[in-house]
Simulated scan of single mutants.
Amino acid sequence: MRELGIGGAYLIEPKVFPDSRGLFLEVFSQPVFTEAVGHPMNVAQVNCSVSARGTIRGLHAIHLPGQARYVSCPNGAIRDIVVDIREGSPTYGEHVAVELGEDDRHALYLAEGLAHGFAPLTEQATVVYLCSNTWSPQSSFEVNPLDPDLDLPWPRDHEPVLSGKDRAAPSLKEAARLGILPSYADCQARYAELASGAPR
């Protein structure tokens, strides 16, 4: 695991063992994760989505105490984009983009307080992600993935297909005016709480 250009976003590059039967890898290792991030990951929910080329899912986020996510793409390939929406963060409004797929079996971890979205790079892609908390509609919110100020590097080969909720989501500036974004200070306090082993 190595941290990317935004604090709390990590790329996981597992060792893959191929042979004549196929291949084997550890998709998730709690000891490796804990050493890299500073606390274990509680897995409360595992999600799976299948998306066609042209789809953009995101940008999705969860109000604190949030939902950390550990994302992999076992079939096909995606571009996953993490956006720092934590007000006061030194990288506020910045993004990192990684490609996850069946060829290299990389995965992505994003801490609570970060937003992300993804788009297939193949005709179809399956995404599986471990979540630290269960999802609820009251705790989730969206930021528009096509916000021109963010200028995110989505694939340009198809007209984007978004859900109605994602298409109607506010820009980052509008989300800030609405007061729905997490603060960097609150997120740092949350990470410290997790590292201390305090009750969730």
Score class of each variant (00 low, 15 high):
residue 14 P to E: 03
residue 177 R to D: 09
residue 186 D to N: 01
residue 147 D to R: 07
residue 22 G to Q: 13
residue 139 S to F: 02
residue 59 L to I: 03
residue 180 I to S: 06
residue 123 E to N: 12
residue 16 V to K: 01
residue 48 C to L: 15
residue 98 V to C: 13
residue 141 F to P: 11
residue 90 P to Q: 01
residue 21 R to P: 00
residue 80 D to M: 06
residue 118 F to C: 07
residue 194 L to H: 07
residue 132 S to P: 05
residue 175 A to R: 00
residue 167 R to G: 02
residue 87 E to K: 14
residue 158 H to R: 15
residue 174 E to I: 01
residue 65 P to R: 12
residue 188 Q to C: 13
residue 98 V to L: 14
residue 177 R to H: 04
residue 37 V to W: 09
residue 43 V to L: 04
residue 130 L to Y: 14
residue 105 R to M: 08
residue 93 G to A: 05
residue 151 D to G: 06
residue 146 L to W: 03
residue 144 N to V: 04
residue 52 A to W: 12
residue 154 W to G: 07
residue 104 D to P: 00
residue 35 E to N: 04
residue 93 G to V: 07
residue 133 N to V: 06
residue 96 V to N: 11
residue 69 R to H: 02
residue 132 S to N: 12
residue 149 D to N: 05
residue 126 T to Y: 11
residue 118 F to V: 08
residue 169 A to G: 01
residue 25 L to A: 11
residue 169 A to C: 01
residue 153 P to I: 01
residue 96 V to H: 11
residue 70 Y to T: 01
residue 41 M to P: 01
residue 55 T to S: 14
residue 26 E to P: 06
residue 143 V to S: 09
residue 179 G to H: 06
residue 53 R to E: 13
residue 138 Q to H: 14
residue 120 P to S: 09
residue 103 D to K: 10
residue 106 H to N: 11
residue 29 S to E: 08
residue 184 Y to F: 15
residue 149 D to I: 01
residue 79 R to A: 12
residue 135 W to E: 15
residue 12 I to A: 04
residue 199 P to L: 10
residue 124 Q to K: 14
residue 25 L to H: 15
residue 172 L to D: 07
residue 189 A to K: 15
residue 166 D to W: 07
residue 39 H to Q: 09
residue 195 A to G: 03
residue 136 S to R: 15
residue 33 F to A: 00
residue 65 P to W: 06
residue 39 H to G: 11
residue 126 T to W: 08
residue 70 Y to K: 00
residue 33 F to M: 01
residue 104 D to I: 03
residue 14 P to D: 02
residue 128 V to D: 08
residue 29 S to Q: 07
residue 156 R to D: 11
residue 198 A to I: 02
residue 167 R to Y: 06
residue 66 G to E: 02
residue 158 H to S: 11
residue 30 Q to E: 15
residue 52 A to M: 13
residue 60 H to K: 05
residue 185 A to V: 13
residue 123 E to Q: 15
residue 166 D to R: 03
residue 12 I to P: 02
residue 124 Q to C: 12
residue 117 G to E: 06
residue 85 I to W: 05
residue 10 Y to N: 00
residue 81 I to R: 04
residue 67 Q to E: 10
residue 43 V to G: 09
residue 131 C to P: 04
residue 178 L to H: 07
residue 44 A to T: 03
residue 84 D to I: 03
residue 45 Q to E: 11
residue 178 L to R: 13
residue 80 D to N: 13
residue 186 D to P: 00
residue 121 L to P: 04
residue 83 V to R: 04
